[in-house]
């Protein structure tokens, strides 16, 4: 079983926004979605980079999959070595993550990451109606002041 990058980034974003991944932050990045449309997603570049580090260490396998919309999806899964290391990880490291991805009502149930119309991600419990949205597509605003800048472009006026 492979985990696709879209839901994986959604999970990383949620864990970053909730402060579990303390050293990560995220930024809006224009991504070509699986439906073939561009849209902004809050992506943690640090998270993405760490995925590459795990691949380099041989703990994570990844695979490129072509889509019907002529895009590419990257999917990940733990390698055997990765699984062994994961099994030995101290509980205090995995617990905060585990708490966020398990249903608060059914503690043993892992929440599923559900994508709706490629425009929304939800964490949903498969046993009850408990769900919450991961606002990965909601781009945060910042206050700013700007002024127009006319730049000289490489065109000659005909007149």
């Amino acid at each position: 079983m492979w985990f696709k990058d879209g839901p994986l980034f959604a999970a990383i974003y949620e864990l970053t926004a909730e402060g579990v991944f303390e050293t990560y932050d995220y930024a809006p990045v224009s991504i070509l979605g699986l439906d073939g449309f561009h849209r902004f997603m809050n992506i943690s570049i640090e998270g993405k980079d760490d995925l590459d580090d795990l691949r380099e260490l041989g703990l994570l396998n990844h695979m490129k999959i072509s889509t019907t919309t002529y895009g590419t999806v990257t999917a990940y899964r733990l390698s055997e070595k990765g699984m062994n290391i994961y099994a030995e990880l101290p509980r205090k490291l995995t617990e905060p993550i585990s708490k966020l991805v398990h249903c608060p009502k059914h503690k043993n149930k892992l929440m599923e990451i559900v994508c709706v119309n490629f425009e929304k991600y939800f964490l949903r419990c498969p046993s009850c109606s408990n769900e919450r949205e991961i606002p990965i597509f909601e781009i945060e605003d910042v206050s700013y002041v700007s002024q127009p800048r006319f730049i000289r472009l490489p065109y000659r006026k005909r007149r």
Binding site: Y144, V145, S146, Q147, P148, R149
Partner: peptide, 14 residues
């Protein structure tokens, strides 16, 4: 076909 929008950012988040 070139469309350019340009601005100087004077201040961001104070």
């Amino acid at each position: 076909g070139l469309v350019v929008f340009a601005l100087d950012l004077n201040e961001v988040e104070g």
